[in-house]
Simulated scan of single mutants.
Amino acid sequence: MRALSLSLRPASPEDAPRLHGLFLQSPSYFTLIGMEPPTLEDVLQDLLTLGKDPRRRAFLLFLEEEAVGYLDYKLHYPEEGDATLSLLLIREDHQGQGLGRRALRHLLSHLAGVERLYAVVYGHNPRAKAFFEAQGFRHVKDGGPALSWYVRELAP
């Protein structure tokens, strides 16, 4: 059995309906963080802000032609030489297949000049915390009851 090819494509405002559908297919994540999935208009507005911050990057994750995830990070944040992964979401019906690990490996291979990668975990999400720890991240601080920061040092 061959593994399906995972590819990442930069997200753009034209992807708003696809990303909105992805969010709607991941209701447990939004329950975990204590909010409703964003509306299509909210998703569109967020994607429109991508071009306004040159440090921010967002990608849709595809298995063949099917959108199965979303990755959103910011370069040089919180400090120069850092990057912060604010969302790595795999659609619920595709979780547990190693796609998050594959997407993270892809990201790590494209972070030239980054010394530390932070990951932000929202809500009480033990599965996400365990995922990041298994990928070599360590917990560095909590930013309130609904936010945890993890960091992984990267080779120069």
Rank of each mutant, 00 (worst) to 15 (best):
R101F: 11
P126W: 10
F30Y: 06
D15A: 00
A128R: 14
L60W: 11
Q97W: 11
P13F: 02
G144N: 03
K129Y: 04
Y29Q: 04
D42P: 03
V68E: 14
M1A: 15
F132R: 10
P156A: 15
E115A: 15
S28T: 13
L63T: 07
D72R: 00
F23M: 02
V43S: 04
L63G: 12
H76D: 14
L117Y: 06
D42I: 00
A3G: 15
F23I: 01
L104K: 09
E153N: 13
L111K: 00
R138V: 05
S86H: 12
H94T: 02
E66C: 10
R91A: 09
L40G: 03
T31Y: 08
D42T: 03
L50E: 01
Q45H: 09
L44N: 05
S7L: 02
P78D: 09
E115F: 08
L47E: 01
L108P: 11
L89E: 02
K141E: 12
I90G: 05
K141G: 10
R55A: 13
E41H: 03
L6I: 04
A103T: 05
A134M: 05
F23S: 00
S7H: 06
V68T: 13
L108N: 09
A134F: 06
R102H: 09
L85Y: 11
Y70P: 09
P78I: 14
G69D: 06
A3S: 14
Y29M: 00
L104T: 12
T39V: 01
P37L: 01
A67I: 02
A11R: 01
L88W: 04
S7Q: 11
P27Y: 01
L6C: 04
E79P: 09
G123Q: 09
A3M: 15
R57S: 08
L50V: 00
P54Y: 01
S12T: 07
A146V: 08
L111I: 06
R56Y: 07
E153R: 13
L99C: 06
Y29N: 04
G100T: 08
R18T: 01
G21D: 11
H20R: 02
S5Y: 07
L89Q: 04
G34D: 01
H20Y: 05
L48C: 12
L8F: 03
A128H: 14
G69N: 08
Y118S: 04
L117W: 08
Q97K: 15
P156Y: 09
A103N: 06
V120M: 12
Q45L: 08
D15L: 00
R127K: 15
H139M: 10
F62W: 12
Q97N: 12
Q97G: 10
A119Y: 13
D46L: 07
L108Y: 06
A103E: 08
F62E: 11
S86A: 14
Q95W: 07
A119E: 11
G98H: 10
R57T: 00
D142K: 12
T49L: 15
L99K: 03
D42V: 00
F59Q: 05
Q97P: 07
L60I: 02
Y70F: 15
E41M: 02
E65F: 06
E79F: 15
L117E: 07
A3K: 15
S12G: 10
F131L: 09
P37V: 07
A103S: 12
S7T: 10
E36D: 05
A83V: 05
R2M: 10
